[in-house]
């Protein structure tokens, strides 16, 4: 396992995440794709820290921060999804279209 393996894994995850976020219909699916993108960043940070800059822990600390922030973000997102689901029984993006223009 070298650095390039990890970075390749990170970029593949990131691309899957971007693709999913742009094409998913369900809001939950989009949320999961966004999580993939965050995790790609985490893998990158940890790998760079281990292989390129092993003296400090900035990368790992940053990864921890990203995890925390992503968790907080998902909490808000799921709350919004719940609020919408209670009213309309649907969570597909194309149904959420009260406002146009």
């Amino acid at each position: 396992m070298t650095l390039s393996h990890y970075v390749a894994l990170g970029s593949i995850l990131f691309i899957i995440g971007v693709f999913g976020a742009l094409t998913r219909r369900s809001v939950i699916g989009i949320l999961m794709s966004v999580e993939l993108m965050f995790n790609a960043a985490n893998i990158n940070l940890a790998a760079f820290n281990r292989y390129l800059h092993p003296t400090g822990v900035t990368g790992q600390a940053f990864a921890l921060f990203i995890m925390t922030v992503a968790a907080a973000e998902v909490v808000v997102g799921l709350a919004l999804v719940l609020a919408i689901y209670r009213r309309r029984d649907k969570i597909y993006m194309e149904d959420i279209n009260l406002m146009r223009g």
Binding site: G10, V34, M37, A41, L45, F48, G59
Partner: peptide, 14 residues
């Protein structure tokens, strides 16, 4: 979405 992109950008920058 954009903060995930930003996090990835920061990881590259790091």
């Amino acid at each position: 979405f954009s903060s995930a992109v930003m996090a990835y950008g920061i990881s590259l920058f790091y």
